[in-house]
């Protein structure tokens, strides 16, 4: 069974992401204050605002083109490290489905994979560095595997979310290895990585739970 996702579905899920980022901005800032410069909440609020205004104005007829444009606008409005990484992810995911009015679950898997590779390349980080990748990479792999095996969208999404949460929790006890947080070394052990948490929040709201 291949569920088809429309531009309208994409818009609705992005509005849910926007709401979730607004709601979690202060919580994310409290995580970031232990590790970085505490500006992640500001960035997420900027992204949430951009998402809402862009999604409201755009029809998402060409899903890929709209996502590429969205990535560009987010980059302009939220130019911090995590802002640049997320805009790269959206840009790369959009490039995979250029000219498509509807997308399949296979497309979704390819988009997640492209987003994952985009962030790895842009941020020059790998698994275990304690970044967004530690949640995104396992989620992408789980989702692709299950979709390939013919598992339905709902079950594959829930399993991917579980992988993201496990990945986030797996690195909480480790030291941050990239970015400003890496300067704090030992002191980062035991702190939840705000980037990994952002991805969990985004994935939850895309799924709609």
């Amino acid at each position: 069974m291949d569920v088809v996702i429309s531009g309208k579905n994409v818009r609705e899920s992005l509005i849910r992401v926007s709401d979730a980022l607004f709601e979690n901005a202060d919580y994310l800032t409290s995580l970031d204050q232990k590790l970085g410069d505490g500006d992640i909440g500001i960035t997420m609020t900027k992204i949430a605002r951009t998402l809402k205004s862009y999604v409201t104005e755009q029809p998402f007829e060409d899903i890929g083109k709209s996502l590429v444009e969205l990535g560009l606008v987010i980059n302009r409005n939220a130019p911090s490290s995590i802002g640049t990484l997320l805009s790269t992810a959206i840009l790369r995911a959009g490039k995979v489905v250029i000219n498509k009015k509807e997308i399949s679950t296979g497309d979704l898997a390819a988009m997640l994979d492209a987003a994952n590779n985009g962030i790895k390349e842009r941020g020059k980080s790998k698994l275990g560095d304690k970044t967004i990748i530690d949640a995104l990479d396992p989620a992408s792999k789980t989702f692709s595997e299950l979709i390939n095996e013919g598992v339905n969208l709902n079950d594959a999404s829930m399993k991917a979310l579980q992988s993201a949460e496990d990945g986030r929790d797996r690195v909480t006890g480790l030291e941050s290895r990239v970015g400003r947080a890496s300067w704090l070394g030992e002191r980062t052990k035991g702190c939840i990585d705000p980037g990994a948490e952002v991805f969990v929040i985004i994935l939850k709201s895309i799924i709609g739970i």
Binding site: N75, S81, T84, L85, S87, T88, L91, E121, R122
Partner: peptide, 17 residues
């Protein structure tokens, strides 16, 4: 420097578009 590399790489990708 990390921040410069990330932003220049992003700019290069946007310029290629």
């Amino acid at each position: 420097y990390g921040g410069d590399v990330m932003n220049f790489d992003m700019a290069a990708e946007l310029a290629e578009l």
